[in-house]
């Protein structure tokens, strides 16, 4: 049986995710009955409800196809960009550049991703956008803090659009892995098939699982903070326990990937470490701007960027490692 990009393997995996969420929902419900509606319990329930929604959304777009998945990630990028721009110290003189950054560049970039034009989507933002935007901003004539404003705008695009778009770009990787890189260039959307969806699910499960596991390890045995001035909640115990258990999770998921268990473990390890780095960097940005969360769109989690900070750092590296070693 298969629906859209989901074959029976992926459907079984999603059923497994559903089972885990059912157990989590039951545990939260039992805890809530025993302890009562304290802040922690309410937050836990909100988080689990949000996980249902996020897992459901990913499953739904993969069932529809690659175009729907790319559109979902474009929307996610735009919402992330809105959060990022809100906390950025931009000035009124930046407005015209921000219009380009929000309305034109993400759409064009995701168009290249959708077209499977690797040669273009891998350089469009770092080359064309990064050189064009400062030039446009210089024309606007406001020079106060120019370097800082330019860097802010580029970083917003880098994280919210470029990095996150590597997640839906995974859908096209199997074409390069199977038929070579030249055949992959410009192949039709959906050409990656079920194997592409499995790569994406693998990365999402490992990275998001790593976040949850680091949180659990940190809450239970965490003592020694890694960078107390950036984020007091990130501890060595949480980091090591979370990354190792998520690496084990990745190895255990080797059957949905084209990798051997050892390769799956290595890729999972790198992705988890990158994910941790993403969380740390975003915490530093939030600390710098004096905020706790990027927004409040996902109840219990904060904003889009609070949930996807780890994915933004893991996805590009995962994509390029797989493309380099397996195609």
């Amino acid at each position: 049986m298969s629906i859209g990009l989901l074959d029976s393997t992926s459907l079984a995996l999603l059923a497994g995710v559903g089972a885990v969420l059912v157990i989590a929902t039951l545990i939260a419900w039992l805890l809530g009955r025993r302890i009562g509606p304290t802040g922690v319990i309410i937050n836990l329930k909100q988080r689990i409800a949000a996980w249902w929604l996020m897992a459901g959304l990913i499953g739904a777009v993969l069932a529809v196809g690659e175009t729907a998945t790319v559109l979902l990630f474009l929307l996610i990028s735009l919402l992330a960009l809105r959060e990022f721009v809100t906390i950025s110290p931009t000035r009124r003189g930046d407005h015209k550049v921000l219009v380009w950054m929000v309305f034109i560049i993400p759409a064009v970039h995701y168009w290249f991703v959708w077209e499977h034009w690797y040669g273009m989507f891998s350089v469009f933002i770092p080359v064309y956008a990064f050189l064009f935007l400062p030039a446009r901003n210089a024309l606007a004539g406001q020079t106060d803090g120019f370097l800082q404003r330019t860097a802010t705008i580029q970083w917003a695009l880098m994280v919210s659009v470029y990095a996150i778009s590597y997640a839906p770009a995974l859908l096209q990787l199997p074409v390069a892995m199977e038929f070579g890189r030249e055949a992959a260039e410009g192949s039709p959307p959906g050409a990656g098939g079920a194997a592409g969806a499995q790569l994406l699910l693998f990365l999402l499960l490992v990275v998001q699982g790593s976040d949850v596991l680091q949180y659990i390890w940190g809450k239970t045995i965490g003592r020694h903070p890694i960078a107390p001035r950036v984020s007091p909640n990130k501890t060595w115990e949480g980091f090591i326990g979370g990354v190792l258990s998520a690496t084990a999770l990745g190895a255990a998921l080797w059957w949905i990937t084209p990798f051997t268990p050892l390769q799956a473990a290595a890729l999972a390890l790198v992705s988890c470490v990158m994910g941790f780095a993403g969380g740390l960097v975003m915490s530093a940005i939030k600390r710098d701007r004096g905020i706790k969360d990027f927004g409040s769109l996902i109840s219990g989690h904060g904003g889009i960027m609070d949930r996807l900070d780890s994915l933004a750092f893991a996805a590009p590296v995962f994509f390029h490692l797989v493309r380099f070693f397996f195609s």
Partner: peptide
Amino acid sequence: GRILPKGEIVPVPHL
């Protein structure tokens, strides 16, 4: 004021 500052036509999304 950051979404649609004085003198601008196209709004840029902010929270």
